[in-house]
């Protein structure tokens, strides 16, 4: 049994990744949000805007999302999921 990544195994891995990546979507739970704005700080495509009065982030333009996962990783409240 060999673990050697050949062109074929690399191909397979990427086809699997491709399937997953296509369907990834942001799920936001605003009730958990405490208004730390890390999502707004790190999103490279502008999907997040802070609502300063309500101290909650707003997720908009989901079609812009590139599923990079930055907001998910930086949210201290685990209020964002990518699945």
């Amino acid at each position: 049994m060999s673990m050697q990544p050949t062109l074929l195994s690399s191909l397979k891995e990427h086809l699997t990744l491709a399937k997953e990546l296509r369907h990834l979507e942001i799920h936001f739970y605003p009730e958990k949000c405490k208004g730390v704005w890390q999502c707004y700080e790190v999103c490279p495509v502008g999907c997040w805007t802070p609502n300063y009065e309500a101290r909650v982030a707003i997720f908009h333009d989901p079609e812009k999302c590139i599923a990079c996962g930055a907001c998910v990783l930086q949210c201290p409240q685990d209020a964002i999921e990518l699945k």
Binding site: L17, I66, A67
Partner: peptide
Amino acid sequence: SPLMRGEQANWGWEA
């Protein structure tokens, strides 16, 4: 470019 989803997303179709 980070602007677009990773190219893997298209890989199957490309093949």
